[in-house]
Design a binder for these strands. Structure first.
Lengths: 208, 208
DNA sequence: TCATTATCGTACCCGAGAGTATTTTATCTT
DNA sequence: AAGATAAAATACTCTCGGGTACGATAATGA
């Protein structure tokens, strides 16, 4: 499908795709996708504007590609935690831990690019929006499967799975937004704890 | 301070401030503040661009003024519910009811302009940001006071008030975002129910 | 060697949007 | 009636950002 047969012909390409993607990722993530222009990225990477357009087609195309990178970098790990069939409390701890890592120490921007893009999807192009929605659904599915799994072990309250999945998704979004607004990570973690421990507290105690 | 002595002198003003504010409010609210230009508002209201600038000073000034209107329209009612010293469950029901009203029936856009602006504050001017922060703090204070009150009646779990306030704020934001993403109001309401009933479920049952 | 191919990158186009210079006009003051 | 005042609105300016035209260039293939 994606054939790069080292198409020997023509002038060899010098554009550093990964560099552009990485730079764009960090810029979008830290400044918000709407506040970074193609020219900015060109200046930061040394790439030429037509080069970037040749590679990604459009602004929309670049954002979509960056979102793909972000997915494998910060969304998939969340899904992995959910699918790693472990005791529910452990999974929750892992989720909280992942979300409230010390970003500054890791040189990673605060907040979540995916959450930010969702909040600004009105300003994004069609392909980025499609990708956004795919990721949203896959996350929601992962939450759903995880919740079902936990329920089957009696470790999750009797809440309709789809509702609970939306709830968890909302907590993730809320946490990422708090982090972005400058709330300390340990505070965010404490909010997440009361939020995510809730559906498991009710597991054995409350029926409906 | 804000003296409008009907300054009898000069050509009388014909610009309809309220019309501009109302139009801008609905536009920002439905399309997102970043997707509405001053020119758009001029075209919709028949106002002239210099007229708008004379009245509001700048884009930032207009947005700030609109946010003020929005505050009294959609934020203050929430605060009023919180301050209306009623049984905690009643307050929760009122909050959920207010947030999940049928907007289309009321001719009101989905979601919350305040929440939207918070998510896009990087694209807003300084005075709008300041106002945004003031509203954020006053809301947080209102949540805090309400939680303290509920606690004093034994109707709220033993969670640090500031953490609980952030939690409630996050639920509000989450609900408004869900609504905007097209999730049906009754689904949003069900998510809010499990979210907001949580801290009161633990009130009498769990100590820590 | 010379055509072919495909990328490179400078210099541009174009539209949108914030903000304003300027002239007119309506009302008040004297 | 003649200034004085302030708002009206047209028609700009200026910048920014997405996107591209096009000649130059570096490789391959015959």
């Amino acid at each position: 499908m994606n054939e790069k047969p080292n198409s020997v012909r023509g002038r060899p390409k010098t554009l550093d795709r990964d560099r552009v993607l990485q730079t764009a990722l960090i810029q979008y993530w830290s400044k918000g996708p709407a506040n970074v222009s193609i020219s900015d990225i060109c200046n930061l990477t040394g790439a030429s504007k037509p080069g970037v357009y040749r590679e990604f087609g459009s602004d929309d195309g670049l954002k979509e590609a960056v979102l793909e990178v972000y997915h494998s970098l910060a969304i998939q790990p969340v899904i992995d935690i959910l699918e790693k069939n472990q005791p529910t409390t452990d999974a929750i701890d892992a989720l909280i831990g992942f979300m409230t890592q010390d970003r500054t120490a890791l040189g990673i921007p605060q907040g979540c690019l995916f959450v930010m893009m969702r909040a600004q999807s009105q300003q994004l192009g069609p392909s980025t929006c499609v990708k956004l929605d795919k990721i949203r659904l896959s996350l929601l599915n992962a939450y759903g499967a995880w919740i079902e799994h936990s329920k089957s072990r009696g470790e999750f309250a009797d809440i309709p799975t789809d509702i609970a999945a939306l709830f968890v998704d909302a907590q993730h979004g809320g946490a990422m937004r708090m982090q972005r607004e400058g709330i300390p990570n340990d505070t965010v973690a404490r909010v997440l704890e009361i939020a995510l421990r809730m559906p498991i507290l009710g597991a054995s105690t409350i029926g409906r």
